[in-house]
Amino acid sequence: MPKGYVILTEAIRDQAGMDAYSRAATPSMVEANASVLAVDAEPEVLEGRWHGDRTVVLEFESVEAARRWYESAAYARAQPLRQAAAETNAVLVAGFEMPPRRA
Rank of each mutant, 00 (worst) to 15 (best):
M18N: 04
E87V: 10
S35R: 15
V45G: 08
R54F: 05
Y5I: 06
W50H: 10
R49M: 11
P2R: 06
V39L: 12
F96Y: 14
F60A: 10
M29I: 05
S28N: 10
F96P: 00
A78I: 01
A78P: 02
A103T: 14
T88Y: 03
L8C: 13
E47C: 06
R67P: 00
Y5A: 11
M98D: 14
P27V: 01
R54K: 15
A41I: 00
G48Y: 10
R68Y: 00
H51Y: 12
Y75V: 06
N89L: 13
I7F: 04
A86R: 03
P80K: 09
A41G: 15
E64L: 06
M98H: 14
V45P: 00
V57Y: 01
P27M: 03
E59G: 06
V91Q: 09
D40K: 03
G4P: 11
R23S: 09
A86D: 07
S28G: 09
M18L: 14
A76F: 01
V45L: 12
A66I: 08
G52S: 07
A84K: 13
A94H: 05
Q83G: 09
A41R: 11
S62A: 08
A34E: 02
L37V: 10
Y21R: 08
R101P: 08
V93E: 01
D40S: 15
R77Q: 15
R102I: 05
L58I: 04
E59P: 03
E31W: 00
A16F: 00
P80G: 12
R54M: 12
A41D: 08
A24G: 10
A11M: 08
L81Y: 08
L46P: 00
R77F: 00
F96V: 14
L8D: 10
R54I: 07
S62K: 06
I12F: 02
A73E: 14
D19E: 15
I7M: 11
G52M: 05
I12P: 00
L46Y: 08
M18T: 07
A66V: 07
V6I: 15
P100V: 11
N33E: 15
V39D: 02
G95N: 09
A90R: 12
W50M: 13
S72P: 01
E47F: 10
A84N: 12
A94K: 13
H51M: 11
E87C: 00
L37P: 07
V91M: 15
G48N: 11
M18G: 04
S62I: 07
W50V: 08
R102C: 00
A11T: 13
V56Y: 00
A76H: 05
L46K: 11
A84T: 04
T26F: 10
A85K: 11
R54T: 12
A65Q: 06
E59L: 07
V93G: 02
Y75S: 04
S72G: 06
T88E: 03
I7R: 02
T9E: 15
K3C: 06
D14R: 02
V6C: 12
E97F: 02
L81M: 14
W69V: 01
A74G: 04
A25V: 13
A38F: 06
L46F: 11
A73N: 07
E10T: 04
A74D: 03
A34Q: 04
G48Q: 12
